[in-house]
Design a protein around this nucleic acid. Structure first.
Lengths: 343, 343
DNA sequence: AGCATAATTGCATGCGCATGCAAAACCGGA
DNA sequence: TCCGGTTTTGCATGCGCATGCAATTATGCT
């Protein structure tokens, strides 16, 4: 087995300096003669030397009592959901643009967050993002004690010391209700994702509350699992009966598209002539010409940017208080809600 | 600043054993009395101790001359593309199921692979997956010298010592041609992604070769950037002229859907009555009732599983030769290609 | 019980790096 | 030229862990 990795000692020897000099050459703040630094870096590059990020984070532990790896852990469920996949993509880009890296951890069920976090902590990550799930009180305290900032994306901060960035699901539900009420609908149905899921619950609550206010309660509730197929199946249940709803609000665009495709293709219904449809998220395909899905948009770019900024700020300065941010969703009116002519 | 991280020494003290015992308690192969191991683990859990994966990978360097971090680096371009996002999701799940973790690195342009790899190497990753891009000869040699196995996904292994898993793009293009020829088309167009991209090139080459064989050359070539909108724009160019093509092969489903939506909604064309359409990839939305897009399916689950298996095998046994695997695509016939009645 | 062998344990050490500290080199002014 | 002050440098050390090795204890057999 040949000598594998080049260390700072090797470079030091080759450059005729001490190992510390090499180390300092790579530390922008360190005191070292500019000429010498250049020389060292030149030699180092020739040799293909790469400072060992792992060892670095180990040894820096001594000085400030903390290890920094430059890595942010991201925990995510439902990674196959395009909405989430996209969210991860954005997180990764933004984190990286700011010089951080992303260690991805996928879990099957929201209950696995604590375990995942445990595993992740082994890597001495500097911060954590949790997508659409929450951690236990106990784990939150552990993170706080560890000085590891936590960012809940898409969820309320459940414990002290935790930041969060999310859409206002309740208000979004209300908005959807308003859109359908304004369009003059009266037999309005709701299609949710997983019934025990906070997101679905809040969206339904806002929706139902607003409808109730208007004296026009939800006539039918269906639930799926956020997938296209589950939306499609929900459509079957919605439109098979006698008294069909004349409007549907889906807690996610993917399900709304499932409803749309099923209604139009499988059941021969027209939208918005036969019923109006409102989705949530405003994913890219909602805007496709053949869909024109009216939806409540999440400004995900901005949200993720903010989440990243907050997290980075706290990683760099652990004293900082956690931030709680809620964004409003905005209606994007498209073709799946009927227009009332002035009457 | 309070004492932050609990170390093996702390646990050892609390458990009344030596630090080595604690270390061994966490090493499945180490020689330690079962009873003592249980005891240590119990105490350790009570204290919330987590072995430090970073330090571990540091110290294990001594014994076998290599550091293992348990982390696989994944380099990806076009992460916003749903097809890629989904691929990453699968890689992450599968790697994790086998006890590995994924450090994600996004790059804007395929030329940045070498740089990305350099950065990634700082983290002493045990292996690399590169999606739809290739590395330089020089970098390939560096990786080999380092004993870091590289897996090119969606690309030919460009250098020695590199594994690859990919779809047979050339054959896929041929198949698409056959499908359209069998349907009796004669004015056949091609829509590619980025023109300099290997994937697009190979798919077009197979497609064009097969058509040429049949004496029916491609009548129009358009290129986009793999996005829906670029497909939509390509449709504008395809169908604005006098002699419209009567069939189109798109090098990706996303673009094919762009063509489909544009043609049906923006231009009032019917599919397959006015033209047939074949895509590539068979993404989930190709199967949606309103699309029914005929496509060349990539068995991505199997491909990614194989890629992961090969990579892991090589990480665990560096002596192993690299593997080169090509999967055939299979046609999924749906509604966007016209059926000829027996004649 | 008495001995040989096997299983277990603790000590000491090193991984690659960053940094406190003191020695050395440098600088400018008198 | 000499001195006080400022940079720059190298030495030595420790981070948390895994492991070789030797010391110790447990086990099996006669």
């Amino acid at each position: 087995m040949p000598k594998i990795s080049i260390t700072s000692y090797d470079v030091a020897q080759a450059a005729g300096v001490s190992q510390s000099a090499v180390s300092r050459a790579y530390s922008p703040t360190a005191s070292i003669a500019d000429k010498k630094r250049k020389h060292i870096l030149k030699i180092a590059n020739q040799m293909g030397y790469r400072p060992n990020a792992i060892a670095r984070s180990m040894s820096s532990a001594r000085s400030d009592g903390r290890q920094r790896s430059g890595i942010v852990g991201v925990i995510v469920t439902r990674i196959q959901d395009p909405f989430f996949a996209n969210t991860i993509a954005l997180f990764s880009s933004l984190l990286q643009a700011k010089g951080w890296h992303m260690l991805l951890f996928t879990i099957d069920s929201p209950e696995d967050v604590d375990d995942a976090l445990h595993s992740l902590m082994q890597f001495k990550i500097d911060g954590v993002v949790i997508l659409s799930a929450i951690l236990s009180e106990h784990m939150a305290r552990t993170c706080q004690a560890n000085g590891t900032p936590v960012m809940l994306y898409n969820r309320n901060a459940s414990a002290a010391g935790i930041s969060s960035v999310q859409i206002d699901n309740y208000a979004g539900g209300q908005t959807a209700a308003e859109v359908l009420l304004n369009a003059g609908h009266s037999r309005i149905a709701f299609v949710g994702g997983i019934e025990t899921d906070k997101t679905t619950q809040e969206r339904e609550r806002g929706f139902a509350d607003r409808l109730a206010e208007a004296g026009c309660p939800v006539v039918q509730r269906e639930f799926g699992d956020y997938t296209f197929d589950s939306g499609r199946e929900a459509a079957g249940r919605l439109f098979s009966g006698r008294d069909r709803p004349d409007a549907v609000f889906c807690a996610s665009d993917v399900m709304a598209l499932g409803v749309l495709h099923a209604a139009m293709q499988d059941m021969g219904l027209r939208v918005p002539e036969d019923f109006s449809l409102v989705g949530f998220d405003d994913i890219p395909s909602a805007a496709w010409p053949g869909h024109q899905l009216t939806s409540i948009r999440q400004p995900i770019r901005r949200m993720i940017r903010e989440a990243v900024d907050i997290l980075i700020a706290r990683m760099e300065n652990p004293e900082l208080a956690p931030a709680l941010v809620t964004y409003p969703g905005v209606v994007i009116m498209r073709g799946t809600v009927r227009m009332l002519s002035a009457d």
